[in-house]
Computed example of a mutant assay.
Amino acid sequence: MTVALVPGAQAAESQNSAPRSVIPLGRAVGIKLFAQGVLVVGLSDITTDQGLASPARACGLQEGDVITHINDAQVSSIEEVQTILQDLEGQEMELTVLRDEESQEVTTRAAQCSTDGAYKLGAWIRDSMAGIGTLTFVDPETGLFGTLGHGINDVDTAVLMKLQSGAITPASVAGVVKGVNGRPGELRGAFSSSQDLGTLYANTESGVFGHLQDPGTFTGTPVPVATAEEVHTGQATILANVAGTEVEEYTVEILKVYSNTSDTRDLMLRVTDPRLLEKTGGIVQGMSGSPILQDGKLVGAVTHVLIDHADRGYGILAQNMLDQAAQAQNT
C-alpha cells in the first residue's frame, strides 16, 4: 500500500545544550515500514455453513488493535497469521493484543469460510506501509538521519505504526499535483524496492529515524541546529525536491513560532518563492521533512499543509527531532 507522507510531537527538553551540526538534505526518498505485529484496520463477517460469523468482533477486537502473538507464536505479517489460522483448523486460540499501549489477551476460534474453505478471523489487517517522503538531515559523523518530521500513521485508523523494521530507498519525483486552497497537492514518484540506503530504528510522533548504510551517501556542508530560542518570525528558506532528484532552495516566511506545543506544529510558514508556488502551489503532500533554514542554521522541517491555504504549512523544530531521535535510540 502506498501512502502520502505529510500530515504530531512532544517538545522535549534539549538533550544537548551545545549546538549540533548536521547536513540539511531535502532529498526525496522511498520509505518502507514493516510493523511490529499486525494492525487491525477493520472487522468483517465470514460466510460459514452455519451462517455469518465474526470471531474478531465476538472476542472484542477493535480497529487500531495490534495483534502481536497467536498463542505463543509472535506474528508480524499477514502471511504468518494466515498460516497459523490454517494450522489450528478452528481450535481455540489466545491472541495477545496491544491497545492504547497496554497488552491484553483474548480467546477466540477462527471460522471456516464456506466459499474457499479457509479459516479466517474476520478482521482486515495490515503489516506494512510504503510511500515517498523527504530526508531532513544526516549526521555526517554517525550516519543518523531524520525524515518526515512526523510519524507514519495507518491511513485507516490513524494509529502510529509500531516499527519492527524498515528502510529508506532511492526515489525520484516524476510529477506534481498542484495544490489549491481546499485541496492539498502531492508529489508523485517512484522508489526502488530493491536498493536500501539505510535502515530505520524508530517511528515516532516527531519523525522517522535511522542510520545510513554508508554515512557518505549524502554530502553537503554541515550547519548548526538552532535552539528553540533562536528561531524567529521572518525570512527563511526550505530545501525541497519537487522534480527528479534535484534539490533546490526556496524562500519562505516563518509567520509564527509556537511554544509548548503538544504536537509537531511548532511553527507556521508561508511559501513566498514564485518558483515553488508555480510548481506546487505551496506545501504539498510528500514534502514532509523538507528542512527549514534560517540565519545559517537548521531550524526545523515541514510537517503539514494547511488545507484551506495551500501556500502555508506547519513545521517541527529541528531541535525536537534530534531530541526524539536520541531518546528513541536510548530506549
Rank of each mutant, 00 (worst) to 15 (best):
V3H: 01
V6Y: 10
A9R: 02
A12N: 07
S14Q: 11
N16S: 13
S17I: 14
R20C: 07
V22T: 13
P24I: 15
V29M: 03
G30E: 13
I31M: 15
K32E: 15
Q36A: 13
Q36E: 14
V38K: 12
V40F: 02
D45C: 02
I46L: 02
Q50H: 08
Q50M: 09
P55K: 11
G60H: 09
D65Q: 06
T68G: 01
I70R: 01
A73Q: 14
V75S: 00
S77D: 14
S77R: 05
S77K: 07
V81P: 00
Q82L: 09
T83N: 07
Q86V: 10
L88D: 10
G90N: 08
Q91D: 09
E92Q: 08
M93T: 07
L98A: 11
R99P: 00
R99D: 00
S103E: 15
S103L: 14
E105D: 05
E105K: 15
V106W: 11
T107N: 04
T107G: 03
T108Q: 15
A111T: 11
C113H: 09
G117A: 14
Y119E: 03
K120Y: 04
L121G: 01
R126Q: 15
D127R: 09
D127W: 09
A130D: 04
A130H: 03
A130R: 01
L135M: 08
D139Q: 05
P140Q: 10
T142V: 08
G143S: 13
L148S: 05
H150N: 04
D156M: 03
V159R: 00
V159Q: 08
L160K: 06
Q164A: 10
S165L: 04
A167M: 05
A167W: 13
P170Q: 08
A171Q: 11
A171Y: 10
S172E: 15
V173E: 00
G179V: 07
N181M: 04
N181T: 09
P184K: 08
E186M: 12
S193D: 14
Q195N: 13
Q195I: 15
D196Y: 12
L197A: 09
A202R: 07
L212C: 01
L212D: 05
P215G: 10
P215M: 12
P215C: 14
T219R: 11
T221N: 01
P224E: 00
V225D: 02
A228L: 12
E229G: 00
G234L: 02
V242K: 00
V242M: 01
T245M: 07
E253N: 11
L255M: 07
K256L: 04
K256N: 10
D263F: 11
R265Y: 08
L267D: 03
R270W: 03
R270H: 08
V271R: 06
L277H: 03
E278S: 07
K279L: 05
T280W: 06
S288D: 01
S288N: 04
G289S: 03
I292G: 00
Q294W: 09
G296W: 06
K297H: 07
L298I: 06
G300D: 05
L306G: 06
L306V: 14
I307Y: 02
R312K: 09
G315T: 13
I316G: 12
L317G: 01
Q319R: 15
N320E: 12
A325V: 14
A326M: 12
A326P: 00
A326L: 13
Q327I: 11
N330R: 14
N330K: 13
